[in-house]
């Protein structure tokens, strides 16, 4: 049976010994990660650190060399419906001939299963999700006519339709306008407040403390994971980014105090 484990101590996501390789290149090395239920977690790391690979391999989209993933204490395969995925906006072709509402409806395909088509119920649900992301007026628009921020909202709406308990997002703020970024953060925080778990690949280190309570710092191996105020420090960032980043939270906190 799928579903959310009653015991709150069982993490929403548990990754054990996860190793992934493409050809002769190791992309993820021996990752052990626990994401507590009801937390909002950032995955950060330099380019090629395996952030997207982590999100994908949690969902079995990429074959693993080794490792086990469990969602609410059971295997991902059993808990598929508890997991909602927001891929990178740039990973699809927005020229695909379809409307906004039809794209959002795709989120209901999993519940429908093979062959059955979405009906009125799924349509209503899609419109509800579009309302949440403030895109209702665009429901009949061609997806090719959307701006980057609007595309990202559509993707989020599609994930909301799935009514899952774990949300995996791949760079939801990449190339979106400030209004959209705020709107997405607000929705994600609402989800977390409602007991859902959010794991999001994040690029902008400046906003980590503001948006997230927990963080996983990645560079092929897991450098650190835990509460943002405990592990998001210069030492760990140096380990992950090397000399490649000039960002340190200490500096930011002084700037903030001004």
């Amino acid at each position: 049976m799928s579903g959310i484990e009653k015991n709150p101590l069982i993490p929403a996501i548990r990754v054990t010994d996860l190793t992934v390789a493409y050809g002769d290149k190791t992309v993820l090395w021996d990752i052990d990660l626990e994401i507590p239920r009801g937390s909002m977690v950032a995955v950060v790391g330099p380019n090629g650190a395996g952030k997207t690979t982590l999100i994908k391999s949690i969902q079995g989209l990429i074959p693993r060399v080794a490792g086990v993933v469990s969602i609410h204490g059971k295997s991902y395969q059993k808990q598929r419906k508890e997991v909602s995925y927001v891929p990178q906006r740039g990973s699809v072709d927005w020229d695909f001939p379809t409307s906004v509402v039809d794209t959002v409806k795709m989120g209901s395909y999993g519940d429908l299963g093979w062959i059955r088509r979405p009906g009125r119920k799924e349509h209503e649900k899609a419109l509800g999700a579009l309302e949440k992301v403030d895109m209702l007026e665009f429901s009949n628009r061609q997806i090719s006519q959307l701006s980057g921020g609007q595309q990202q909202r559509v993707f989020l709406a599609r994930a909301l339709v799935q009514s899952a308990s774990v949300y995996l997002l791949d760079e939801p703020f990449q190339g979106v306008d400030a209004t959209t970024e705020k709107a997405i953060v607000r929705i994600l925080k609402e989800l977390v407040a409602g007991g859902k778990t959010v794991l999001s690949v994040h690029h902008d280190l400046n906003t980590v403390s503001e948006y997230y309570e927990r963080i996983a710092i990645l560079n092929v191996g897991l450098v650190a994971s835990g509460r943002v105020d405990e592990v998001f420090n210069s030492e760990n960032l140096m380990k992950a980014y090397g000399g490649k980043t000039s960002f340190f939270p200490e500096r930011k906190s002084t700037r903030r105090a001004v």
Partner: peptide, 11 residues
């Protein structure tokens, strides 16, 4: 449109 997403839904 989005085979990765489709894959996560069990298709």
């Amino acid at each position: 449109f989005d085979p990765d997403f489709g894959g996560t839904m069990g298709f």
